[in-house]
């Protein structure tokens, strides 16, 4: 809820839907210290999250050089706005990933970037997907949990969610790609996310 009091606590949340945040360092604390200009804390934040941020950006943007650029912008933005993080509105990881996802999506939606992505797509897609998938499979219990949760979605929901989140497509584009009537994709995305939320046990 909006008014939950976790913001007042300096302890990490006991149950963290993101899993990684609960196992690793306290990201909320690192973020708070970063807001006060603590560069060491920020380095800790980077080390704890950069695989996830860079991996997502790379998945959406495809072009490795451009992905590095976007990732760097994301972290500078996180550093700059760290004081604006509100723990009452979600986990630190979720906040950070929201910035990263938005940045990656904004980048690919500029026409120049789209062209470059398309060029890079053919050569990089297979490799990137395979590497990321293979790596995740043996390094992350969480990945296994997420896969299992994804299996509870209908095929239609799953495709829509993946194209939107991992592909960076708008719901209009998703509708086109899946040959759905306009307006249907956003419902599929929402229904899919609700299923995912319920399976993963995410609570606000």
């Amino acid at each position: 809820m909006m008014d939950r009091m976790t913001a007042a606590s300096s302890d990490p949340p006991v149950t963290d839907s993101e899993g990684a945040a609960a196992r690793g360092p306290d990201l909320t604390d690192l973020l708070r210290r970063s807001a006060r200009g603590d560069e060491e804390a920020f380095a800790g934040l980077y080390d704890a999250t950069s695989r996830r941020v860079y991996g997502l950006v790379l998945r959406i943007v495809r072009d490795p050089a451009m992905s590095e650029e976007v990732t760097q912008e994301v972290y500078l933005d996180v550093w700059r706005t760290s004081a604006r993080f509100d723990a009452g509105r979600g986990t630190a990881l979720s906040w950070l990933m929201t910035i990263a996802h938005r940045a990656a999506v904004d980048r690919v939606r500029s026409s120049e970037a789209s062209r470059r992505r398309d060029d890079a797509h053919a050569s990089a897609t297979q490799e990137v997907d395979f590497d990321a998938t293979a790596e995740a499979a043996h390094t992350s219990i969480e990945a296994a949990r997420v896969r299992k949760a994804l299996d509870t979605l209908t095929e239609a929901q799953r495709s829509a969610v993946e194209l939107a989140y991992l592909g960076g497509y708008t719901h209009t584009e998703v509708a086109r790609l899946l040959d759905l009537p306009l307006g249907t994709a956003k419902t599929r995305i929402r229904d899919g996310l609700i299923r995912l939320r319920d399976t993963l046990g995410v609570t606000a």
């Binding site: 839907s17 993101e18 899993g19 990684a20 560069e39 920020f42 380095a43 980077y46 080390d47 950069s50 695989r51 996830r52 941020v53 860079y54 991996g55 997502l56 790379l58 998945r59 590095e68 990732t71 760097q72 972290y75 500078l76 550093w79 509105r89 979600g90 986990t91 990881l93 979720s94 990933m97 929201t98 996802h101 990137v128 590497d131 990321a132 998938t133 790596e135 995740a136 390094t139 992350s140 969480e142 990945a143 997420v146 896969r147 949760a149 994804l150 969610v161 993946e162 989140y165 991992l166 929402r190 996310l193 609700i194 995912l196 939320r197 993963l200 995410v202 609570t203 606000a204």
Partner: peptide
Amino acid sequence: HELTEAAHALAALTEAAPPASLRTAVLAGI
């Protein structure tokens, strides 16, 4: 709030190590 948290769980599927040079650039940048 809830759907965003759920969506970001998908990022666990695409983890990839960035080049070490990126860390240096980020920390120099801040």
